[in-house]
């Protein structure tokens, strides 16, 4: 039973990271129809942001801020440099563009920083664990879960209560209409990228805290899972992305924890096959996106 609870904590912690990444992808996709392959590199930049701060010996809060800021900056810069000129291009063109950018950034990290993982020193207090009754819970997974929940809550408030947030939700359903109403498209799109960068930055901080290092492919693999999560949730659906993220995280952690060792190399295959099985039953995802079809 204790084991189950510990694994549940792990599942929530990993699922939360996937959920934040998937939500960032979904926000951008729902507005500009871009499946951002380079989202993983935004997360990696966040990781390097944390690394740079620790190299200079900055305290933890500043290191966290540095990581988040780096990711937001990377996301906004990417939109400005690469995607703004391509607004309105086909889904395939946008996808391939982001793919190429992702490849270029990975090569830049490898040559400009290092192909090897860079260790990040964290205070000993963070890597410890504490006891709740008979259960041992890690400090970092706990912080991770709490942060994820706060981030998702904050985002929900932002999307529901602020003008920009409402403009973004409207844009997700019908961007053309919103533009006709006189809302500045550039601002909404930039805000969407900034938000996705913010979420990726938080995810990067959590990820580096748990792994203790950052490398050029750090963001690539978690974002692959997040992609799957967005499709599972219903591509373009924000609540679906969060649900999908937690689902993928849970399947991954529980399959690792409860499957026999002989099957453990197949973990990714099992996770993804489960997702595809769900899609067979619900091809539009768990929470299908609302989208105005103007054809």
């Amino acid at each position: 039973m204790d084991y189950v609870i510990q694994q549940t904590v792990n599942a929530l912690s990993l699922g939360g990271i996937y959920a934040m990444l998937a939500l960032g992808l979904a926000i951008v996709f729902s507005i500009v129809r871009l499946i951002n392959f380079a989202h993983g590199e935004i997360m990696t930049v966040g990781g390097y942001g944390v690394f740079a701060a620790t190299v200079f010996g900055l305290p933890i809060p500043l290191a966290v801020a540095s990581g988040v800021f780096a990711a937001v900056f990377a996301a906004v810069a990417m939109e400005r440099v690469a995607f703004r000129a391509m607004r309105g291009a086909s889904v395939v063109s946008l996808l391939i563009t982001s793919f190429a950018i992702s490849e270029i950034l990975k090569v830049l990290f490898q040559n400009g920083i290092s192909a090897r993982p860079k260790p990040i020193q964290l205070p000993a207090a963070l890597s410890g664990s504490y006891e709740v009754g008979a259960i041992t819970v890690g400090v970092i997974p706990t912080i991770s879960i709490v942060t994820t929940l706060l981030a998702l809550l904050g985002l929900t408030l932002f999307l529901r209560r602020t003008e920009t947030g409402m403009a973004m939700r409207a844009a997700a359903e019908d961007f053309e209409m919103l533009r006709l109403l006189g809302v500045r498209a550039d601002r909404v799109v930039a805000a969407a990228f900034a938000l996705s960068g913010l979420l990726a930055g938080i995810a990067a901080v959590m990820w580096t805290a748990q792994r203790g290092s950052v490398d050029p492919l750090m963001g690539f693999f978690p974002v692959l899972k997040a992609f799957i999560a967005t499709v599972l949730g219903g591509l373009g659906s924000l609540s679906g992305a969060i649900l999908g993220g937690f689902f993928v995280g849970a399947v991954e952690v529980f399959s690792q924890a409860f499957l026999p060792d002989s099957l453990s190399p197949y973990r990714d295959a099992i996770v993804l096959s489960t997702v595809i099985a769900v899609l067979l039953v619900r091809p539009d995802g768990l929470v299908p996106a609302v989208k105005v079809d103007r054809s």
Partner: peptide, 28 residues
């Protein structure tokens, strides 16, 4: 069976899932 049911972008991402599945099976 799954991919032919999905629309454009969802289908594309699922093919990515296929790539990862086959890769991990080959390693396993």
């Amino acid at each position: 069976l799954a991919i032919a049911r999905l629309r454009g972008a969802s289908a594309t991402i699922s093919t990515l899932g296929l790539l990862i599945i086959v890769h991990s099976v080959l390693i396993g």
